[in-house]
Amino acid sequence: MATYVLCHGGGMGGWVWRFLKPLLTQAGHTVYTPTYTGFGERSHLISRDITSATHAKDIANVLKYEDITDCILVGHSYSGVVLPAVKQAEPDRIKRIVYIDAIVAHAGQAPGVAIGFMPPEQAAGIAAMLAKGEGPIGSGVDQQQREQAKTEPHLMTPERQEWLLAHLSDMPLACLVNPVPAGAETLGANVDYLAVRHTIMKPMHERARALGWRVHEFEGDHAIIVGNPGPIANFLLGLA
């Protein structure tokens, strides 16, 4: 039996795996769905000091204190910038890494820059402001996603989209503007990237291919883990 550690995206939390996790556990596998500091049920901890390095420590500590070995480490969306640092911290506890429509950031890049939200100079300026204890704590990603869904609904039932949007929380702005502690290039070529057709992450798909990663294409949108988790679960089960 395999052990999966599922890492969520921006504005989300461990709750977002509600529909995918049972598809793995029913097959007899062990699944962990941690929530990053400042997200979801830990949203009361949001602060200007939280970066992707904090979240890499969150996951590395889960691996350490749960005595996890030979796990399949899975990252959706924002988690793409976290997983390389987790691998760097706990290399012997990870057997395989899977990205699900996730950000591919190189060393020294801020996540917001990697995905094209802002130029490097703007990210550096915001990071300096936050370091002085000034500026907004959150990025507003939860409200942005709710507004976008009004004109561009997710590929899922209205009921499931309502559930998804209701559970979103803000994320620390510092996560987007501070450089990542480890770049995706440090992972080598043994990475599977699950790319969906309807997404703003297409430039990330090309970055994954340029790194020599195995890119697998799926019909769906960025919230496929909620809207249509079956094909993703089947792929993950195939790695067990």
Rank of each mutant, 00 (worst) to 15 (best):
P84S: 13
E159G: 13
Q26N: 14
L73F: 06
A124Y: 00
L239T: 11
R42D: 05
L6Q: 08
I94Q: 04
T51G: 09
A166R: 09
Q143S: 12
F218K: 05
L130Q: 06
A184G: 15
N234C: 01
Q109R: 10
Y99I: 01
D70G: 09
I137D: 12
N61Y: 07
V98F: 00
A210L: 01
I68L: 13
V5P: 08
I100E: 04
V196S: 01
D49Q: 15
T157C: 11
K150Y: 07
G9S: 11
Q161N: 07
P119A: 12
T69K: 14
Q148F: 14
I68V: 15
Q145G: 12
H106F: 15
V5N: 08
H106G: 09
A128T: 05
R93N: 13
C7P: 00
V74Y: 00
P181A: 13
M156V: 12
I50D: 02
G108T: 07
G38V: 06
D101P: 01
V86H: 09
R146F: 09
V104F: 02
G112Y: 01
R207P: 00
R96W: 06
A85Q: 12
G14Y: 01
K202V: 07
A89C: 02
Y32I: 04
P120E: 13
A53E: 15
A182W: 06
D221Q: 10
R93E: 08
L73N: 12
G28N: 06
M171S: 11
I46K: 06
E147R: 15
G183A: 00
P91S: 10
G212T: 10
T51V: 10
I103G: 03
L73W: 07
M204F: 01
D67C: 08
M1Q: 14
I72S: 10
A166F: 03
